[in-house]
């Protein structure tokens, strides 16, 4: 069995700050991490490999620094990694990103046919959740989004049964391989990297593919050119004009509480009625 896991390197958004004067994102010094949602995808692939054997290839498209994310994936236990990197990919939206990734997976499959592709639920920077469905449609894979558990996998029958989150419940769905799974957060917990894998990762020569290596000839489908969406404006949310009206500055807790209820009763009649504070 051959599993491809797609991961993205993202800035650790918990540490992202907006410059108070220029309103620009301050990226300097913000560490880059594997998109947290993708770690669940890596772990789920590793668990399948534990049970069924086979190999795991981790793929990312990004700048040369994204090599660090792949090295980390090796430490977790991936067999192989590919860094898809080429200036021509810059500025890609999700349509162009899924084209480039799908094309690369096709190329990977020429050597080792691919049974399953994993992605995360979404990223924490672009946050669209569109790349997984995009890759699946382009490759004609069965799409299984928001998967919380893999119930069964039968490599003879080439069938897979999963639980996926849907509105108001969980859908248990059975389909055929090859399939693409977007993994829900919290569905598993990443293992500790083993010593052997850590050593292997330190020495690992990360293969870098440019667009030619990925078999992409048509540059009109990648990067900015291949992106139907255009970011036309970036701005900060406008502040609300009025500050809160302060209540109970010189009262004790109980006095304050009553002052709040008095204010609601006099200023917000309908709400106060619905709360039962005043009778109609």
């Amino acid at each position: 069995m051959h599993i491809v896991v797609c991961i993205k390197q993202v800035p650790d958004s918990a540490q992202i700050r907006v410059h108070p004067v220029t309103n620009t994102i301050m990226r300097q010094g913000v560490p880059a991490i594997i998109n947290p949602f993708d770690v669940f995808a890596i772990e789920e692939a590793l668990r399948l490999k534990d049970r069924f054997g086979g190999r795991i290839t981790v793929l990312t498209m990004g700048p040369p620094q994204a090599e660090d994310a792949l090295r980390k994936a090796i430490a977790y236990g991936a067999d192989d990694v590919i860094l898809l990197t080429d200036r021509a990919f810059a500025g890609a939206d999700t349509l162009a990103t899924s084209f480039a990734l799908a094309q690369t997976i096709r190329k990977i499959a020429e050597e080792h046919p691919v049974d399953l592709v994993f992605t995360g639920k979404q990223t924490i920077d672009g946050d669209t959740a569109q790349v997984g469905p995009g890759i699946a449609k382009r490759l004609g894979l069965q799409l299984l989004t928001y998967v919380s558990a893999i119930d069964s996998l039968d490599l003879e029958e080439r069938s897979i049964t999963v639980q996926r989150r849907s509105e108001g419940g969980v859908q248990v769905i059975r389909t055929r391989l090859p399939a693409l799974i977007t993994m829900l957060e919290g569905s598993n917990q990443i293992r500790f990297a083993g010593m052997d894998d850590m050593f292997r990762s330190a020495r690992f020569e990360v293969p870098k593919w440019n667009k030619e290596r990925a078999g992409i000839e048509d540059v009109s489908k990648i990067g900015l050119k291949g992106s139907p969406t255009v970011v036309s404006k970036i701005f900060t949310p406008r502040p609300r004009a009025v500050r809160a009206q302060m209540i109970g500055a010189d009262l004790d807790a109980s006095g304050t509480a009553n002052a709040v209820l008095d204010t609601l009763s006099s200023q917000h009649l309908r709400l106060a009625q619905e709360l039962g504070l005043i009778t109609a």
Binding site: A129, Q130, P133, K137, T229
Partner: peptide, 20 residues
């Protein structure tokens, strides 16, 4: 969850832009 699953697939099939 339903809307995003469908939207991503439809946009890719139609080869058009999708803002999330």
């Amino acid at each position: 969850t339903l809307g995003r699953d469908l939207a991503g697939s439809v946009a890719t099939t139609l080869l058009t832009g999708l803002t999330a």
